[in-house]
Design a protein around this nucleic acid. Structure first.
Length: 532
RNA sequence: CGCGGGGUAGAGCAGCAGUAGCUCGUCUGGCUCAUAACCAGGAGGUCGUGUGGUGCAAAUCCCACCCCCGCAACCA
């Protein structure tokens, strides 16, 4: 049976249009999804939108729309983003989906109730309407909300509570033992120390009277003082990972082949929800926990937080429109460290694009195919006999490279793959660029651009060099498949290969030297990445 | 003393005890197949501070201090 691989992104909150940060998360998840498909696994890749809660209601009011109209528009914008980034997701879940999502949430709720993990408690706290949240007494400044400088109201509510305290210890143990692996380690420590500080039960509902835009609680526990409730937005949101798999049958014991998630991609701001509350819910509901939680950082814009008032918000649509999907994917993966904050500026984007894509990958393909056209009539030469001499990397040997062309390329491929498995996408792409360097250096060392006669070389020798460079490019294209799908396709096409067939190759098949058949006609086309 | 991360060439980072390294940028040379590209070489750093501690040896371990940045506060 095929190995399964279930990967999720967090679901985007629909109170504002998408920005570049969410694009980062989508792209990271997409690399993993595509990579695991290449490995031949049965992949399910889920993303979606989180559409309930007071902030949405407020945003809708400001836009003079009903909440439903409002989220419909925003959700479709997120869906559009998923398309323009060329994501390979299998599902897109919306929390306003009353058919798939609502019953799943209610089902989970009842599982928790059955286990005795839901109870009713009177809650008293200071509520700041500016924050739309309760503020702990110790955070008040002179009795005022530190952010809004207003006096919060003392509110008393009866709500349903979840016995989070009951599960904190187990969650902690699972994270410590890497049964739930939180990546990077710094985030793991962060959540562990947070749990160590003591965990209290948390409110899992708000009175219906106050919060209508959400999923109603269907409880068999008597309504608290006759007050109907709405499910806490985070419970609602987290359950998307279950409802997005299509059905809820497996909650009742029927196995779903994709459960549990293999990787859940999230931002550092929502670590607590995913590494504490979510696993606790799953334990309580008798479901397996996610295997990996991959926590990315934030993207700053010119070193500052993106904000409307600063006017430095980066619109992912605009970027894609200007530079193309693959260029945007490339920047996000190469320039932004996968689990740390990164910075976006147009200057950096341009530098990265020109150096790696235009002068690197694009130029290598262009120069090679031009030589092939000029001296080989655009046809792959007969598979030549390689000698240590034709495989030599010359000066590279002294720079510490393995002195053999084929081995060096293969070594970078292996490095790239192992980086991907460790979620080090930037290093994966660094290995790709290193491969480009190797090809360029190899061309130089063997003076591939000098016609054979002029050099007094034997024809076969220079044939071997060209052939090797072409094979190097083919390897590069293959490793680029998950990262830059369009580009990889274009490279295959220009090499005269069928992209569909190449995609199906395994690592072992691809790295077998000789994938390009002699006599194949190249289809040189326009530059992959015009310089900007 | 809240918890955590970090301060290494102009920028971004790696190294975490044993001749300071990578990418980008910059300068010089080479080459001409290429998207003014590519290749080679150079310049550029007393590795936050302390004439601090431990070691034969410290970016690397310990101590003190300074500075940034996260989390704590539902923006990915």
């Amino acid at each position: 049976m095929k190995k399964k691989f279930y990967i999720t992104t967090s679901i985007a909150y629909t109170n504002a249009p998408p920005h570049i940060g969410f694009a980062l998360e989508l792209v990271q998840a997409d690399i993993l999804a595509r990579y695991h498909r290449i490995l031949g696994e049965d992949v399910f890749f889920l993303t979606g939108t989180d559409e309930h809660g007071q902030k949405v209601v407020k945003a809708a009011e400001d836009a003079k729309k009903s909440p439903q109209e409002f989220v419909d528009v925003l959700s479709s914008r997120f869906k559009k983003l998923v398309e323009v980034l060329n994501l390979s997701n299998d599902g897109f879940i919306r929390t306003t989906d009353k058919k798939r999502h609502w019953p799943t949430v209610q089902k989970i709720w009842s599982k928790l109730e059955e286990g005795g993990d839901i109870y009713i408690k009177k809650y008293k706290g200071f509520y700041c309407f500016g924050c739309e949240a309760f503020i702990r007494e110790k955070d008040l400044a002179n009795g005022e909300c530190p952010v809004h400088q207003t006096r919060p109201e003392l509110i008393e509510e009866k709500n349903y509570f979840f016995r989070l305290s009951r599960y904190a210890k187990q969650v902690k143990e699972e994270i410590e033992a890497n049964k739930i692996k939180v990546v990077p380690g710094a985030r793991k420590n962060e959540i562990l120390s947070f749990i160590e500080q003591g965990i209290e039960d948390i409110s899992f509902s708000r009175p219906r009277k106050k919060v209508q835009w959400g999923i109603p609680v269907l409880s068999y526990i008597p309504k608290v003082g006759g007050i109907k409730s709405t499910t806490y937005v985070w419970v609602d949101a987290l359950v998307n990972y279950i409802s997005g798999l299509g059905g809820l049958s497996f909650i009742s014991g029927v196995k779903n082949k994709y459960w549990p998630p293999d990787v859940q991609c999230i931002g550092k701001d929502i670590l607590k929800f995913h590494a504490l509350i979510w696993p606790a819910i799953l334990i309580a509901a008798g479901l397996e926990r996610p295997k990996n939680i991959l926590v990315h950082g934030f993207i700053t814009s010119g070193g500052q937080k993106m904000s409307k008032s600063l006017g430095n918000v980066i619109d992912p649509f605009e970027l894609v429109k200007k530079y193309g999907t693959d260029a945007v994917r490339y920047f996000l993966l190469r320039e932004i460290p996968p689990t740390e904050d990164g910075d976006f500026t147009y200057e950096k984007f341009k530098q990265r694009y020109n150096a790696d894509l235009a002068n690197g990958i694009g130029n290598l393909l262009a120069r090679t195919l031009t030589m092939a056209e000029k001296y080989w009539l655009g046809i792959v030469p007969k598979i030549p006999q390689n000698t240590p001499e034709t495989l030599s990397l010359g000066k590279f040997v002294t720079s510490g490279w393995v002195g053999n062309f084929q081995e060096s390329i293969k070594e970078e491929l292996i490095k790239s793959i192992s980086s991907t498995e460790n979620f080090s996408f930037n290093n994966s792409l660094f290995s790709v660029i290193t491969s480009v360097f190797i090809c360029d250096g190899y061309i130089e060392h063997h003076k591939l651009y000098k016609p054979a006669e002029k050099l007094g070389n034997k024809k076969e020798k220079i044939d071997a060099v060209l052939y090797n460079v072409l094979e190097g490019i083919r390897h590069i294209a293959w490793i680029l498949l998950p990262f830059l799908p369009e580009t990889a396709n274009k490279i295959f096409e220009q090499l005269g290969l069928d992209p569909e067939k190449e995609k199906e190759k395994t690592f072992d098949e691809t790295t077998k030297w000789g994938g390009l058949k002699p006599g194949t006609k190249f289809k040189k086309s326009k530059p992959l990445f015009p310089k900007i």
